[in-house]
């Protein structure tokens, strides 16, 4: 053989091939917990037609998906379920946080609603809006495709670097004590402190 290809050169080409096939056939897992789920359904159906971008195969089993779309508010009781579904999805996988509620809690700053799913699972793309229009969600899918094409690697090395939690600090640490609005009264009878992790 006259020219022996350099090892790096070969790997880069495989990465490109893997990224090409991965990006153009994302299989979404609809984690639709509230009203945003309706827009998610609209996005996948004929009028907006997510199939034009290769993501029409929405599966309800996490084992068959590689793109989790969290559409809607997530409450405390749902967080363990969401984490479990995320862990059940095979690598490589990505996550879209769709809507104000999934991204930040939205208007639901109450005792039960989690203030952003990125506090508990990694998120790749956020979609603002309440609810976001299907076009916005399609843009997010295109952004994921671009992300995959730009930084994807065959063995998923880009994921290994993301070791630290990519989240804001717990709300209780973020807020000044004066912001923790408490109506005058005996807090002792109403609440008890929890551990912060």
């Amino acid at each position: 053989m006259a020219v022996r290809p350099n090892e790096n050169f070969l790997i880069t080409q495989l990465d490109w091939l893997a990224n090409f096939v991965r990006a153009n056939s994302l299989w979404p897992m609809p984690f639709a917990t509230a009203c945003c789920g309706i827009e998610l359904m609209a996005t996948a159906s004929s009028r907006y037609d997510l199939a034009r971008f290769g993501s029409e195969a929405i599966r309800f089993s996490p084992r068959q998906c590689d793109l989790m779309i969290v559409a809607g508010r997530v409450v405390m009781k749902m967080v363990p379920v969401m984490q479990r579904i995320w862990l059940q999805m095979p690598e490589p996988k990505w996550c879209i946080s769709m809507g104000a509620c999934a991204s930040s809690g939205g208007v639901f700053d109450t005792y039960a609603v989690v203030q952003g799913i990125d506090r508990f699972i990694p998120v790749d793309v956020y979609v603002p809006g309440c609810p976001p229009r299907p076009e916005q969600l399609i843009r997010a899918v295109l952004d994921i495709q671009e992300k995959v094409k730009r930084q994807g690697t065959l063995l998923g090395r880009e994921f290994e670097e993301r070791k630290a939690p990519e989240r804001p600090r717990p709300l209780a640490l973020e807020l000044a004590p004066s912001e923790k609005i408490v109506a005058p009264g005996s807090v002792r009878t109403a609440t008890q402190e929890w551990d912060v992790n």
Binding site: V114, R167, A172, D195, V196, N197
Partner: peptide, 12 residues
């Protein structure tokens, strides 16, 4: 705004 209940989960 809730106390700390909403934050007592493991982070992945």
């Amino acid at each position: 705004r809730g106390r700390l209940e909403r934050h007592n989960f493991p982070v992945i």
